[in-house]
Design a binder for these strands. Structure first.
Lengths: 340, 340
DNA sequence: ATGCTGTTTTGCAGCGCTGCAAAAGCGTAG
DNA sequence: CTACGCTTTTGCAGCGCTGCAAAACAGCAT
């Protein structure tokens, strides 16, 4: 395996200094057309390609950002991931992915002062296991953008949607159908369950706004937002004396699990039980029945997050922390509206 | 922002040479307990963390591998991705992800002699837009492991499952149910459609093995293996004079799309039409009806790929190319067997 | 003491690039 | 012909680490 071609090799062939070659390669101003052409030719003749590692070291930056999410096989995240990669690539950055499984230690390792630090210039982070307080304890020099329901403590940016309003909207939709025994699946009444709690709040507020009272006994918790938990929670609800006639699920996966249980028990969706989800993943649009849902603008969340992060990376003094709300909308499908 | 602590800083404090500090930090042998402790203490006192960028340059390696797949929001890939990350992390490597959208240019850029080259020490690549010939034209110095249905040309390793056998098994399962008008959805009769063609071959062979003949007019092509294409192809099949009584879909997403069409037309699955998919994605297990499928051992594919790649990266002379077959199994669910 | 062997520590060069500031070139004005 | 300001090119140091080979040390036998 022969040695790689270096700047110096090109310089020698072109008869200029290696610094000039660097200038040409990086498209700096103030290079005469004459030399530019000469260098360009030498570059091509030798098949020179810059050594990213050396450039990184010299510049003290890696040109990479990390995207840290709890689960990659969750459609919501894999759909988001796509948009993040696209946005970052457009700005010349690579994306390093990591899945934490919601493990607090793993999450902490990514935002703490650690040896991985230099591998990325900043982090887009969707926390699950770390609560608000633990989040505050991040490497102060690490540009950080947080996704989801945590709020900013002033040292990082935060991008999310208005969960309370969205949940309220979803619940109101169920009430509009005339349903009155509404269940909610997905509550998480502990420090790291902020997202869930906001949705529960929206669920309650929707009732109150109509002079109704949410049935507290129909609010069921789940450890995760996946199909299995949804299926189990639904089974639990159906085994009660007075099962619900509508269910607000805190994610589409939960909704899919719940629907699976309903159908296999011979119930009809939405006739017997209407179901609405949250996240607008692709599966929900093609399932039987298709799933009504809250659709956050993922593309916007991703591009906003990347933009803010790069701004943070590039600015010498940390810019003021920003709270950003991406828009969302209610999408009505068969699981609440029935067949067309 | 103050300067980072370097090896030299630690060396000074500990009263040893910077090389010794390096030895301690990297756990090299031949360091006396006395010095190790002294250095260790200095490291902690100063909060030293090695600069990965500098290490990379000095060692001429990046400690990263790239995983290049066509689509990240396809559950098959996002599930695979997880396992790859886990396996790589266990061996001290980070994973850089890229999605190509099946664009041949984009794919080529990743395996060709290019400036990104140094960013990763090797690539695990699932080609879609590049055919066998284009694949051969990769940077010979790039350790490469290819996933899917291409076969190796001797310059890279290949990991996949036996598509023909698996497809045959799926088809035989449908025949065992007594169905005789079998359709196949997903054929791609062009250079980059090797995966599809192997599945079609298996479909035909299953018929032949029983002295039957596959209905060529019921083999439908699709540009991609997603829900929408599955839904459309199914609609096309149902509009025929003699619609099929069973369908072999070349991916679970295609199957989910097909089932969606069937149900919305008022047909019963599997009573009227039995459906089997391919890939064993999680959705298929919780859909209504749940989807019978061919389940490739993804965990094994991922770990094998990573292992081979690292072997290739670490060995001075390129090891001989290997063709590896991961096991698969037939999973029978409601879409062929009905409710349990 | 001296030589020998094996272990531990060190010094230096160099990975390939970019930042910085100085040097060279060049055109115009005095 | 010299001076001045601007553009273009250069040289060098240094990013922080590791590879290599030499140096220092230690233990033991002679």
């Amino acid at each position: 395996m022969r040695r790689e071609v270096t700047l110096r090799d090109v310089a020698e062939l072109a008869g200029v200094s290696s610094r000039t070659v660097s200038n040409v390669v990086n498209g700096y101003a103030n290079v005469t057309e004459r030399t530019r052409v000469r260098v360009q030719r030498a570059v091509e003749e030798l098949g020179y390609r810059p050594n990213v590692l050396a450039r990184n070291l010299a510049q003290g930056r890696s040109g990479q950002i990390a995207l840290v999410v709890p689960y990659l096989d969750t459609p919501y995240f894999s759909e988001l991931l796509q948009s993040v990669i696209r946005a970052a690539r457009a700005r010349g950055y690579n994306v390093l992915i990591d899945q934490t499984d919601g493990d607090p230690e793993h999450e902490r390792a990514f935002i703490a002062h650690g040896s991985r630090r230099l591998l990325f210039d900043g982090v887009i982070f969707s926390p699950l296991g770390l609560d608000q307080r633990a989040l505050a304890d991040h490497d102060p020099n690490l540009p950080l953008v947080v996704l989801g329901e945590r709020s900013s403590d002033g040292t990082f940016d935060h991008v999310g949607i208005d969960d309370v309003a969205a949940s309220r909207q979803a619940t109101e939709h169920l009430l509009d159908l005339g349903r009155r025994r509404l269940a909610a699946i997905g509550d998480q009444p502990y420090a790291t369950g902020e997202a869930a709690q906001l949705r529960t709040r929206g669920f309650r507020e929707a009732h109150e706004a109509r002079g109704l009272t949410a049935r507290e006994d129909l609010i069921v918790g789940t450890p995760r937002f996946n199909r299995k938990d949804g299926a189990q929670a639904m089974a639990y609800l159906l085994d009660r004396a007075d099962p619900p006639d509508a269910v607000f699920c805190y994610s589409d996966l939960v909704a899919l699990g719940a629907i699976h249980t309903l159908i296999s028990r011979g119930l009809r969706v939405p006739e017997d039980v209407a179901v609405i989800g949250y996240d607008d993943i692709e599966d929900g649009a093609y399932s039987n029945p298709s799933v009504s849902t809250i659709s956050p603008d993922k593309e916007m969340i991703a591009t906003t997050a990347v933009e803010r992060l790069l701004l943070r990376i590039d600015s010498p003094a940390p810019p003021p922390a920003v709270e950003m709300r991406a828009p969302h909308k209610l999408i009505i499908r068969e699981s609440t509206a029935g067949k067309g």
